[in-house]
Simulated assay, not measured.
Amino acid sequence: MKIIKKLPALIVMICPSVWAGMQPMDESEMSLTYGQAIFEVTDQVVSQPEGADLSMLRLTIGARIEINANVEELSLGRYWRPEGTNCTGGAGGDKVCYNNVLPVSYNDNINWACTAKPCGSVGLADENYKSSALTHDTDGEKSFFDFPGGYQPDGGVDIKLRDVTMGQVRDKGNGQYELLPFIQENPYFEFAFDETSGARKLVGFRIGSEESFGYQGNIIDVISGFIRPNITANVQVPVLGGLGTIKLEAFLGGVRTIGWLDTKTLDLYSVDGIASALITGPDALLNQSPHAQLFPVQSNYLEHSKAFFFSVGTRSIQWSSVQGFSPDVTSPGFWINMGGDGGLIAKTQEGDHPNNYFPGHPKNAIYGGNTNYGNIANLPSWSQTYNNN
């Protein structure tokens, strides 16, 4: 007890400068001080291509999230949108609408118009809903409706995804299975405010992370967003087999669309093998693949991507940059951003929906036979915190 009573006096004797030096710090001294905290708040003004500049308030959480989860259905933004006009892109020249020539009657609904006609690409002829025999290993063209999980096109919602998976289940053999997570580093929430009226008016919100890593799969019935995957397709022709490889990056997004190739937004990087005689440029690729493209791309690999987020807004918004990456402008309504920084990888030839269901789960009967592709050694795994070995 005597030692304990004398301990405070001993501390003062050893560290007199600590006790004597506690004084308030001014702003300049604070600005030169660094520390580590779980939360980081940034407040900045971001210029906009259209309309007034917006004030962006972002809360970043210094955390690593490792998640393995399945979501039956994700539907966001069920409300009326006018159909887009001036459809001058994609196969046939009528599949992608740029909304730069719209009826006067649309008034302030112009920015809310769909970018596929009809809205949500629902009601087109059946041949539009087939996978390309050139870039998908399905023994020729295959109807979307015949894929595992089926197809439910919906023109009345901004985003409709089914059987959403984050991570994978790996069969290790001998009845043992391993969960592989989908990883997000430093998640954030960001709010966009319009201050032109003298008060802060909330016009947009988004949620994302500074880095996403791992497999994310879903059945894509309809989507609103900026979707730009890097695709490596092994060209397959019935009887003849493999003819070579195509590497491209394509913008497949828009408002309520199922994704169409368009020479205006297509980067064809390389074609090798016999396929080079068949695919001589973007126009030739489009002629060989005139179908909607997003639905068959059910397995997405995010390779340390900075470009994965969901947003909702009452106007078009240029969001702030994240780790040096500045995303494309989001459109009004609900929006998903995947790609644009080179981190969204799709191998359509091996693009089965990721299997993230244990034996006995109803969806295991649908996806259990799929091969989860990728080099296992490079896949994310649970941190040592969860390792029981």
Rank of each mutant, 00 (worst) to 15 (best):
G35L: 01
D341V: 06
P49I: 01
Q298N: 04
F182H: 08
Y301K: 05
F358Q: 03
F226T: 13
T330M: 05
D352K: 08
T348P: 14
I258K: 04
Y177A: 03
S75G: 10
Y386V: 11
Y151L: 01
L10N: 14
N100M: 07
G93P: 00
W80C: 03
V297Q: 12
S131H: 05
L252Y: 04
G62L: 05
G208C: 05
L59I: 15
I279E: 03
W80F: 14
N128T: 13
G342E: 08
T135A: 11
G273C: 07
H136N: 13
Y357R: 06
V101S: 08
G360R: 07
S132Q: 02
F295Y: 15
N230Y: 06
N355H: 04
E350V: 02
N234K: 15
D126I: 13
G351C: 01
D137H: 15
G62A: 14
Y269F: 15
P296Q: 08
K130T: 09
S197T: 15
K306P: 07
G253K: 00
K347W: 12
N372F: 02
D163W: 08
I376D: 10
V271E: 06
G84D: 02
L7Y: 14
P359L: 03
I67W: 08
G90Y: 00
G175N: 08
Q349A: 13
A275T: 09
G93Y: 01
Q48M: 04
D126G: 11
P332H: 06
L240R: 04
W335Y: 14
Q36D: 14
F358P: 02
L278V: 15
S331P: 01
N372K: 04
E210S: 13
T348S: 14
A37G: 15
S311C: 02
G156Q: 12
K6L: 14
C114L: 04
Y151A: 03
P148E: 01
S289F: 09
F205I: 11
N300P: 02
I246S: 02
K247R: 13
M13Q: 09
N111M: 12
W335G: 09
H136P: 04
K6H: 11
K95D: 06
E211V: 09
Y301M: 12
D272Y: 07
N356Y: 00
D171K: 02
D171E: 05
I317A: 03
D194C: 05
E350I: 10
